[in-house]
């Protein structure tokens, strides 16, 4: 049983994929954190802004931003799924690249 997070041994290709997936996940997470945090801070400290009409048919900012947060969650989730798949197809290349190296050692 090897520990994937244990870097004292050379990274197994699958561990590298996991690390990349985790990194992609964290980046997207911070993107959403900024969007969500912005919404909450705006609500808490400038609530009057939420009533202003927007370009979306005159619906107010509260509705557009709120529904936008839901849409953003879905978009980020799809993006993540797509990026992870890209990473796992890299994995085949990584594994191929890693194989001769480990043999030569």
């Amino acid at each position: 049983m090897e520990d994937p997070a244990d870097s004292s041994t050379p990274l197994h290709p699958s561990a590298r994929i996991m690390a990349r997936n985790a990194r992609v996940g964290l980046i997207l997470f911070f993107v959403y954190l900024v969007l969500y945090g912005g919404f909450m801070l705006l609500n808490a400290f400038a609530p009057q802004v939420m009533g202003t009409p927007t370009f979306v048919g005159g619906a107010n900012l509260a509705l557009v931003y709120g529904v936008g947060l839901i849409a953003a969650a879905l978009l980020l989730a799809l993006l993540y799924m797509f990026l992870c798949r890209a990473v796992s197809s890299d994995a085949a290349l990584d594994a191929a690249a890693a194989a001769p190296r480990s043999e030569s050692r």
Binding site: L26, L28, F29, Y36, I70, A73, A77
Partner: peptide
């Protein structure tokens, strides 16, 4: 909004 945002944490982290 809050309930849904939680899923981003669940999925990405």
């Amino acid at each position: 909004i809050g309930y849904l945002a939680g899923w981003i944490v669940a999925l990405l982290v």
